[in-house]
Simulated scan of single mutants.
Amino acid sequence: MAHRLMISTVAPVTLAVLALFFLWQGATWLFDVPAYILPKPLDIFAGALARKALLGKALYITFAEALLGFLLGALVGLAAAVAMILLPLLERMLLPLFVALNSVPTVAFVPLALIWFGLGMGSKIAIAAFAVSFAMLLNALDGLKRPEPASLDLLRSFGAGPFGILWRLRLPVAMPAIVTGLRIGLARSTITVIVTEMLGAYSGIGQVIYQSTSQINYIDVWAAVLVSSFGSLVLYGLLVAIDRKLVWWR
Rank of each mutant, 00 (worst) to 15 (best):
N139M: 09
A53F: 10
A129M: 13
I242S: 14
S232P: 12
F117M: 04
I61N: 06
T180C: 06
Y60C: 02
V225S: 06
I115E: 11
L30G: 00
K57V: 02
S133M: 10
L38T: 02
R51Y: 09
L171A: 09
S232A: 06
L235A: 14
F230E: 07
S203E: 15
L95G: 03
F98T: 09
G161L: 10
V132N: 05
I178D: 03
P162G: 12
A160F: 09
P39R: 02
L226C: 12
L18P: 01
R244L: 09
F130Q: 05
Y210L: 11
A48P: 00
S123I: 00
K40F: 08
L186A: 10
L30D: 03
L154Q: 12
W249L: 09
N217K: 04
G143D: 08
P176N: 08
A108C: 15
A126Y: 00
Q25A: 11
A113C: 13
R146A: 12
A129Q: 04
P34S: 06
V240F: 15
D243P: 06
T190P: 07
L182R: 09
V10R: 12
V227N: 11
V195L: 00
L49D: 06
A187G: 12
V33D: 10
V76M: 15
F134C: 03
A150Y: 14
T62N: 07
M175T: 15
A128G: 04
L49E: 10
P147L: 06
W116R: 05
R4S: 14
P172L: 08
A201F: 02
A160N: 11
D243V: 11
F45C: 02
S212C: 04
F163P: 12
A177V: 02
L87K: 08
W249E: 07
V99H: 08
G161H: 07
K40S: 13
L72M: 12
V76E: 11
I178N: 11
F70N: 04
R156M: 05
P88D: 09
Y202M: 08
P12R: 01
A16L: 14
I125W: 02
R188K: 10
W167G: 01
P105L: 14
G56P: 03
L5V: 05
L186E: 07
A46W: 12
S214L: 15
F31D: 01
P12L: 13
W24F: 06
F163S: 14
L38N: 03
T62H: 12
S232M: 04
T106M: 08
L119W: 09
I85N: 13
I216N: 06
I209A: 00
A140S: 15
V76Y: 12
T9F: 10
P12V: 05
S123H: 00
V132Y: 05
L68A: 13
P12D: 03
L101W: 03
D220Q: 11
L166C: 03
P88W: 08
L89H: 13
V10D: 07
T192R: 00
M198Y: 02
